[in-house]
Design a protein around this nucleic acid. Sequence first.
DNA 1: CAGGATCCCGCTCGATACTG
DNA 2: CAGTATCGAGCGGGATCCTG
Lengths: 116, 116
Amino acid sequence: MPLKVRKNKSPSPPPPCMLSHCMAVISGAWAANVIWSLRAGPRRFNELRTDIPPISAKVLSARLSELEQRGVLSRNVQPTSPPSVEYALTDLGGELVPALEAIVEVGHRLKMRDDG
Amino acid sequence: MPLKVRKNKSPSPPPPCMLSHCMAVISGAWAANVIWSLRAGPRRFNELRTDIPPISAKVLSARLSELEQRGVLSRNVQPTSPPSVEYALTDLGGELVPALEAIVEVGHRLKMRDDG
DNA sequence: CAGGATCCCGCTCGATACTG
DNA sequence: CAGTATCGAGCGGGATCCTG
């Protein structure tokens, strides 16, 4: 499994190309959507849930932790009365946006081709 | 599940953004690697298996079919004595390469940041 | 409001064996 | 060589409940 190597039982040699590791940044079903939602600016937890309706809180939380740990986004806790947390793309995270836009562009044209 | 909607039981409304559908093009664990391996030119089935060691024949076959159907790559059967099949990126498929390169670039710098 | 804990499901993938 | 068929495992994910 290239997107995430966690099994020690994996007998196969690691793929030489580093694409796998890099793609892991947008792995999981929702990571790309999170980055996408953050591209216009910082968002709070429930705002992200609203942006991406079908995502569950658990998975959103998991993806946010993962992306934060990878340095794609930052987490700012506001010590207000109802605690609120703001997530924002880091500089490096922001650089993923053009790439996603390019993929969306191509995907769009592929779809047009499909639907006739 | 945004990358692929096949369950009819999904009660949630489809996400308005089309990112999901577009990301489906490089979904699955290996699609990106396949595109990556093809970026330098056409490759045969077993060459791809060699390029991406841990992939199984079954999954490679499945991904190739999917990518062909989506219009990302083309399949050319050579009627030689040992049958050989060449896979190559289509024009649209080729346009995904810069996007992948951008992601790899960012992923690389993220990794450097991680490892210190 | 933000998210952790738990349970369960199903897709994706790997291994192996087999076909044209 | 280029796949397909079958089997089984594991991880990602959804639903629900619960906490600070």
